[in-house]
């Protein structure tokens, strides 16, 4: 079966009905997308499927055939960081950083969906992502700055 990840077509082995997460990490060596819980409860494995943040851990790879998958590795494909990545770096958000890819992909979908976002929209959009180091206020600050400065996004 073929899947399209970050604008590249890959042929993948679907024996045993693997999840998208397993295929990304073990077959394509795209390990930026993380395992955190295996039940779509933590957001560490979020990727964009046709632009929608999707937990790769519970998504059978066979269900994304013909769809566009975007992972953390595809964000800066043109050699420039995505504004969300820049905002997170600018705010120096992370401690251990393990939640970063899922957090960033969720935020990318959010800021690309709408020009400006109020605090409640940010909370609603990000609540499915856990940062166990609890850097939540810094993440919110980064996203607020970004969504207030819409020309950047």
């Amino acid at each position: 079966m073929k899947i399209n990840v970050n604008a590249t077509e890959y042929t993948v082995d679907v024996q045993g009905n693997p999840s998208l997460l397993e295929v990304l990490r073990e077959q394509l060596d795209l390990t930026g997308t993380k395992y955190g819980c295996g039940e779509a409860a933590c957001g560490a494995c979020k990727v964009l499927v046709n632009g929608t943040p999707t937990p790769a851990c519970i998504t059978p790879v066979t269900s994304v055939q013909g769809k566009r998958i975007r992972t953390i590795e595809g964000l800066d494909a043109d050699g420039r960081l995505h504004p969300v990545q820049e905002a997170f770096l600018e705010e120096d958000v992370f401690q251990c950083g393990y939640c970063a890819p899922g957090m960033i992909m969720t935020a990318v979908a959010l800021v690309e969906s709408k020009k400006s976002l109020d605090e409640q929209e940010l909370l609603d959009g990000m609540n499915g992502n856990i940062c166990r180091c609890c850097t939540y206020p810094a993440i919110l600050n980064a996203l607020k700055k970004l969504t207030q400065n819409t020309t950047k996004a």
């Binding site: 990490r25 390990t31 930026g32 997308t33 993380k34 395992y35 992972t71 953390i72 590795e73 964000l75 800066d76 960081l81 990545q85 997170f88 770096l89 120096d92 992370f94 950083g97 393990y98 970063a100 890819p101 960033i104």
Partner: peptide
């Protein structure tokens, strides 16, 4: 700033699980 912070926001840092 966090050293190698850019590796973490790009998903490039390899944790053991990676």
């Amino acid at each position: 700033e966090k050293i190698n912070g850019v590796d973490f926001v790009r998903g490039k840092h390899r944790y053991v699980s990676d």
